Simulated assay, not measured.
Amino acid sequence: MQEAISHLVTLAQALGKPQDHHALPAPFALVPQGVKVQDLEGMLRAPTRIRQAVTVLDADTFIAYVNRFASTASVVFCDGPEGRTFRAVLDYHQPEQPSWGQHVAVYQCPISIEWGRWKSSDRKRMDQATFAEFFEENIKDITAPEGIPDAPSAADMLEISRTLEAKKNISFRQGTRLDNGQVQLTYNEQIDGQAGETGQLRIPEQFYIGVKPFLGGDAFCVAVRFRYRIQEARLAMWFELVRPDKVLEEAYTTVRAKIQGSIGEVPMYEASI
């Protein structure tokens, strides 16, 4: 009886003994219950490969992470100004050797608070008090670039927003054709505005802001049109960002060039996965 028990124990130990196989990345064992293959990688001192998805918050961190883990198999994908996402797959496929692609770092250029404020209020008509309050809260973003002598200063724009007075002049001109009695009516509307305590400030057609479209990115000088109208006897004021899509495109291109110039020979593809 004891001999039979010893024989069964020996068979069980043989079935559960870990085996190495060149086709599998980790050791395995045949488990007697159901005779299934049991992965034993969790019992090793370290995993057999990196499985990690990292989301970074700025371009410098993305560059540092890629440079730390990059190999000849690493690639970076970027999906253009609309997606603004850079994805590094550090264990990507090679022409003659497929890989798992499970070690990934992602950087999606985050919109800055400053750019978000200006963009959310772009072309939004406001009463004078609301408009002046917006300018007061964001006055640090207004700039007067060198080389543009007529660019209004931040102080000028704040005073204009507070003191602008406008009046509407409407004139009609009527003409009658004698041959058929047709009446021609011409309508002309003119809005005149002045600003400053004594009306000494020139009201500009546009001003400029210096903001970073992406958090932690470079700052750009953006032209902004200044607009005002009289609607139902009330003054409406607003601003219009000049080609904000081009601003984001230029900001993205700048980030792309920075990353590509800092990750050595790691290839970069305009694509998304």
Rank of each mutant, 00 (worst) to 15 (best):
A4C: 07
H7M: 03
L8V: 00
T10E: 13
L11E: 14
L11S: 03
L11D: 04
G16A: 15
P18F: 08
Q19H: 05
A23Y: 06
A23D: 14
L24R: 08
A26T: 10
P27T: 13
L30T: 05
L30V: 09
V31E: 12
G34L: 06
L40M: 14
L44H: 10
T48D: 06
R51G: 03
Q52S: 07
L57D: 13
D58T: 02
D60E: 08
T61Q: 12
F62C: 09
A64L: 07
V66W: 04
N67R: 15
R68Y: 09
A73F: 07
V75C: 08
V76N: 06
V76Y: 09
F77S: 09
C78S: 08
G80K: 04
E82K: 10
E82C: 00
R84Y: 09
R87Y: 02
R87P: 01
A88V: 12
A88L: 05
V89Y: 00
L90E: 05
D91N: 12
E96F: 00
Q97T: 13
S99T: 06
G101W: 11
H103N: 13
A105I: 15
P110Q: 03
P110N: 03
W115S: 07
R117C: 13
S121K: 09
D122Y: 02
R123F: 03
R125M: 15
Q128S: 06
A132Q: 06
A132R: 03
F134V: 07
F134W: 15
I142S: 10
T143D: 02
P145A: 06
E146A: 06
E146L: 05
E146G: 14
E146R: 07
P149T: 01
P149I: 00
A151K: 10
P152A: 04
A155Y: 12
L158R: 11
L158Q: 14
S161D: 00
S161G: 14
S161N: 04
T163A: 08
T163S: 11
A166C: 10
K168E: 15
N169Y: 05
G175C: 01
L178N: 01
G181P: 04
G181I: 05
G181Y: 01
Q184S: 01
Q184M: 05
L185G: 00
T186R: 02
E189G: 05
E189C: 05
D192Q: 15
G193K: 03
T198H: 14
L201G: 12
I203A: 00
Q206I: 00
G210M: 10
V211Q: 04
F214G: 13
L215Y: 07
G217E: 03
A219N: 10
A223I: 01
V224D: 02
F226H: 07
R227M: 11
Y228C: 01
R229Q: 15
A233V: 09
A233F: 07
A236S: 07
W238V: 02
K246D: 14
V247E: 12
L248G: 12
E250V: 06
V255Q: 10
V255M: 05
V255T: 15
R256F: 13
A257W: 02
S262D: 01
I263N: 02
G264W: 06
P267Q: 14
A271W: 12
I273R: 14
